[in-house]
């Protein structure tokens, strides 16, 4: 076990994936000499060369579009989008080409791309640097969506994402990049499937489902709660592992879904709908969502009010129990 930040764990995972498969290439803005604006690719260009860690022009649609071509040619491009708010120029390529090529070629052409996107707020950033775009991608058939919540999960899931023959939108919770955790660098990344939710803390009274940056917040809230809270890290947003959530809700009868993204048509809505389909008769209360409001991400001085925090999670827990 080694203690390291999530940024370092991702770096180690990328390194392992590149050692394992020579057709893995990293592609993105400022990822080479600078090592990425969050230093996730630090040192990789030096060790693997400029032909495998490629500094791209400043053009997101271009980066993803050319990665589609490279994938057709048998490479496994791992794209870095610098910030969440900058992925939208590439949205057309992702939705129209990355997601649909396998289907349109009747399975002949796979798109083993990974598109890494630092996402979420909480870092005092300026406009367009704190967004949570996951629902757009989850809504798009043909894309898989993963988001790690701690360094060990990051180390393993980035390798699994790269090994997947499907395109993976890999959302990195940027406010957790510098959180440290124990990482077993010898762990076999293929021992467990990444496409599952994880019960991180068992509990009996209320189930709290969350992912990415909110996982730490929810674990802290569970610790502070005056009832027994089960915390589930969804981890795989597409496919969504509803079975683990439903099994928990069958015991607790109460579910709170927590995410930073706005509530309307977000992951919370999907989880609520699926749980009501799966285990309606176990629900002692409606599924509650504790989320960002339906507003553009606010100026950073207000983000504390926008982002669900320990108090808001506990308020949700209180309300779902009082129902």
């Amino acid at each position: 076990m080694t203690t390291m930040t999530m940024a370092k764990a991702l770096n180690a995972g990328l390194r392992r994936a590149m050692e394992r498969e020579r057709r893995v290439v990293l592609f993105g803005e400022d990822i080479g000499r600078l090592g990425g604006v969050f230093r996730v690719t630090d040192g990789l260009q030096k060790d693997f060369g400029e032909h495998r860690v490629i500094d791209a022009p400043l053009a997101e649609s271009g980066i993803v579009g050319t990665s589609v071509g490279m994938a057709m040619r048998g490479f496994r491009p791992v794209v870095e989008i610098q910030f969440d708010g900058f992925v939208y120029p590439a949205f057309d390529q992702i939705v129209s080409q990355v997601a649909k090529t396998l289907r349109r070629t009747d399975g002949a052409v796979r798109m083993p791309l990974v598109i890494r996107i630092p996402y979420g707020g909480g870092i005092g950033a300026v406009e367009h640097h704190s967004e949570s775009p996951e629902a757009y991608f989850v809504h798009t058939a043909g894309l898989r969506v993963l988001t790690p919540s701690d360094p060990q999960a990051a180390y393993l899931t980035i390798q699994q994402a790269i090994a997947s023959d499907d395109p993976v939108i890999y959302l990195e919770p940027k406010r957790r990049y510098w959180d440290k955790g124990e990482v077993d660098l010898d762990a076999d990344p293929f021992a467990l499937s990444p496409w599952h939710a994880r019960v991180l803390r068992p509990g009996d009274d209320v189930t709290v489902a969350c992912y990415g940056p909110m996982v730490r917040t929810c674990l802290e809230a569970a610790e502070a709660a005056d009832c027994s809270v089960e915390v589930i890290d969804l981890q795989s947003l597409s496919p969504l592992d509803i079975d683990v959530v439903a099994a928990s809700v069958r015991r607790t009868g109460h579910l709170v879904v927590v995410h930073e993204a706005s509530s309307t048509a977000g992951l919370g809505a999907e989880v609520a709908a699926r749980v009501s389909e799966e285990c309606f008769y176990s629900l002692e209360a409606p599924v509650l969502r504790v989320t960002g409001y339906d507003v553009p991400y606010p100026a950073s001085r207000l983000e504390e009010h926008f982002l669900p925090d320990l108090d808001r999670v506990l308020d949700g827990v209180d309300r779902v129990r009082a129902f």
Binding site: V126, A299, R301, L302
Partner: peptide, 22 residues
């Protein structure tokens, strides 16, 4: 400073707010 998402009146000053997305 993060107290505004723009900052000024672009119509009165005939100068758009800063665009962040390149």
């Amino acid at each position: 400073r993060g107290v505004s998402t723009g900052g000024w009146d672009p119509i009165a000053l005939r100068c758009a707010i800063y665009t962040i997305v390149i």
